[in-house]
Design a protein around this nucleic acid. Structure first.
Lengths: 210, 210
DNA sequence: GTATCTAAATACATAGTTGTATTTGAATTC
DNA sequence: GAATTCAAATACAACTATGTATTTAGATAC
């Protein structure tokens, strides 16, 4: 099994990626501020030298992590939106989307850290808000599309506001699902979300049978 | 203006309280893990000696902070529940409750820190869950009471689950309201919450006019 | 193959943090 | 008012973190 010999650029890119992946793991485990640059480099199998050669600072790296994750989510959502699916397929896919949402532990923690940091740091908050609003607008597009498809007259509450509410709700439920799975099982989480979504968008309480 | 001479016990109590208040301020500003014991003591006008004489560790203090805040909220809610108010008064009070909810910056940050810490530390998570579930049950009582009062047949979703959802929603909206007040004003926040509450509990989309 | 470049390692200077052990001085007790 | 007690200050020793400055060794260019 021949290990491919890497070009300088490839090697650098590999280092960068490894550092970022290690950073996620360590930050999720010990917290952003509880994680030292040494921790990250060490966990990736490098020394601090490698870190500072690739990133300006821990803060700089953290932004990169968020952007990377955000990019993935946005791509996924955009694909769904572009796919021009049937109503049924769309509903299925959306269900799956928030289904997988509350399974990704690492992302949850990363963004929870980010929110806290945003509360404290104005500059960071602005960058963060840009990302959040991009996601919000994506979700708002879904709401609008859905309203059109279903022939519902749009709610008096703007879809952008509803989108933020859904983000808030999913996020918070994800936490409960993670921290007290006995009280809030995966099924219960899905069921609650679906109840509230349905009530909010169709205006009728879902009479779903367990 | 004679400054009252304090007994030893009073003085100790004062120190303790000052340390706790200082801790909230500093932790909100710099984060739990970014805050040193020295920071806290210093901000309260003492040295580390005073801190360690009053608390076992920073973790110990943090739990105290959460318990104190939790106690206040529970008291307020219990009073509301005991008051046996008319429907109108109850609705008013509840509106006021979540109205004031998203005005308390410090508490938000404290609990956000706590959630992150809970994800990482099993023992802490258990203590934290106890508090969360107490609050959940309190809110579930409100939901049940409300259903009875309004003569609604209770939702197929258990009130405890709905209670967690409402906590999740309020919390998340509070964040957006704090971090992007231009996108999510106080009024918009109230409006969205009220839309979703109404839809969820009455099963009808609120047609509220701005 | 020699010279050059640069990613990553290493060395260093500085500074902050923790918890305990000891001391101090003001409140209490007799 | 002398003795005692204890809240808080101070001193201490071990450890961890940061960022920069310098070195090293493997890729690239000639």
């Amino acid at each position: 099994m021949s290990r491919k010999r890497l070009t300088r650029e490839e090697s650098r890119e590999q280092t960068r990626t490894r550092l970022m992946d290690a950073a996620v793991a360590v930050i999720v485990k010990k917290g952003l501020s509880g994680t030292s640059v040494e921790d990250i480099a060490g966990h990736a199998g490098y020394t601090r030298g490698a870190f500072y050669s690739n990133f300006k600072s821990k803060a700089d790296l953290f932004i990169e992590l968020l952007k990377r994750d955000h990019g993935h989510v946005q791509e996924d959502l955009q694909q769904l939106l572009d796919a021009d699916l049937s109503n049924e397929a769309l509903q299925m896919q959306l269900a799956q989307f928030y289904g997988q949402c509350y399974r990704d532990h690492n992302s949850y923690v990363l963004w929870a850290e980010a929110r806290l940091h945003a509360v404290r740091d104005t500059k960071f908050r602005q960058r963060m808000n840009t990302l959040c609003l991009e996601k919000r607008d994506m979700i708002a597009s879904f709401i609008t599309l859905f309203d059109q498809r279903m022939g519902l007259q749009p709610s008096s509450t703007p879809p952008t506001d509803l989108a933020l509410a859904m983000m808030a709700l999913i996020d918070g439920m994800l936490y409960f699902n993670m921290s007290m799975p006995n009280e809030m099982s995966d099924e219960a989480t899905g069921s609650v979300l679906s109840t509230i979504f349905t009530a909010t968008f169709f205006g009728l309480q879902a009479k779903q049978t367990k």
